[in-house]
Amino acid sequence: MNEKKILMTVRNLCLTYDASLGGSETEALEDVNLDIYEGDFICVLGPSGCGKTSLLNIMAGLVSATSGSVLMNGKRIRGVDRERAVVFQTPTLYPWISVKKNIAFGPDIRQVPESESAEKVDHYLKLVGLEDFADSKPYELSGGMRQRTALARALVNDPSIILLDEPFGALDAFTRSSMQDLIRNIWKETSPTIFLITHDVDEALMLGNRIVTMSQRPGRIIKEFETSFTDRVFDGDEDVRYSQEYINMRKELLTLVGYGKA
């Protein structure tokens, strides 16, 4: 495991929301430290309002931290970069262009000639199973299909890391489960680095190779876990969620993040 290359480092990250914007001063993140290795599938698990999304936004470069730093390939990040793709909870597809054009948005703004990007766009369109909907408009798609489009749009841009902010939170249980299979397969087959935020314990357990738990606000990292349930699901062991090992870890995670206390 040691030969893995560090991709991103989060060091002593704090975020305090200013009281001047109204309301009292709130500490959203407190001394967050995290190393992300190339090819990791990190699931960040925490109760709502714990600052998970703030952490993701800082890593994306959308929000500046109050103190601390985020390094990528050893360099401190300043602002947004297409190296770090983001998929938001509600897909932000552009309704004025087709599904295919949405996926091609990144290459298009970089003015990559269509002859070069077309093949790749088609590849990802197929990968997320939307080849029959290439010319549909986003509003003609179901919620799951929209999120798949958003995922393809992020992937086609060749990011070094994909940041997913509760991407399946708004989907129904069946769609969510098929989306989880999809993203697991993508991770297994093309091994991108994935950073996924969730408040769903099973989602974290069934997807990540690392699970990071966060506390109630102010968000701190409580504990990190390494798991391999996702590999076993990929190998066809669908019943892994009923194993004692899984149940034990699930219990521990639930206790850590404080579910069921309220």
Partner: peptide
């Protein structure tokens, strides 16, 4: 998020 998405895609 509409604008953020475009930014993260390099716009």
């Amino acid at each position: 998020s509409y604008i953020d998405t475009a930014r993260t895609l390099g716009a």
